[in-house]
């Protein structure tokens, strides 16, 4: 690095030209009024993106966001990794549910009865995952039609049937 390259005085003199640039006459007379008008009109209602809010709230997030902005490949790689992990999780969960259903429907165990077959028909994974009780206990499982599915003990009805091959019966539970 030569000394000549470190002499920035002429450049600094030139940059002073920027200080002489001024907006149109009277510009600042109306500026604050315009800002307040827009505030009163409701523009100060948090219209910022999550990105901007994170930048202003924390220097940590500001630097993280700057990193992601500078290297978008990082966020792409993270997003891909998250998707792959989700897929793996879903596959593993599905496999464990299937295994549990097969184990639960071994010969000698009754099928479950449910209040709303519509719910379980639409959610075969749930149907296969419904825990079963021994037939002689006279206790089964019902699933009501509420959006929040709940499991309630009921009196068993009907003959023993394999849930893998039979539709789930609709029963009213009181």
């Amino acid at each position: 690095m030569s000394e000549k390259n470190d002499n920035f005085d002429p450049l600094k003199q030139l940059l002073k030209l920027k200080r002489h640039e001024i907006p149109p006459p009277g510009y600042f007379s109306n500026f604050s009024g315009d800002v307040l008008s827009r505030i009163r009109a409701g523009e100060a209602g948090g219209s910022d993106s999550i990105f901007e809010r994170m930048q202003s709230s924390s220097p940590f997030w500001s630097s993280m966001l700057a990193l992601f902005t500078a290297k978008p490949g990082i966020i792409g790689g993270l997003a891909t990794s998250v998707c792959v992990l989700l897929l793996v999780g879903v596959v593993l969960l599905d496999r464990s549910d299937s295994g549990q259903a097969v184990a639960d429907t071994m010969p000698g165990q009754p099928a479950a009865t449910v209040a709303d077959s519509g719910v379980l028909d639409a959610t075969p994974a749930l149907a296969s995952a419904v825990p079963l009780a021994p037939a002689d206990a006279g206790v089964g499982i019902s699933v009501n039609s509420n959006p929040v599915t709940s499991l309630q003990p009921i009196t068993a009805f009907g003959s023993e049937q394999n849930p893998l091959f039979q539709p789930i019966l609709v029963k009213d539970v009181h």
Binding site: Q13, I22, P24
Partner: peptide
Amino acid sequence: SLNDLDFNAEHDPDLVAL
């Protein structure tokens, strides 16, 4: 979309030298 230069720019000794 540049702003105009003020009157003093032409009399700034640093700029005049430039």
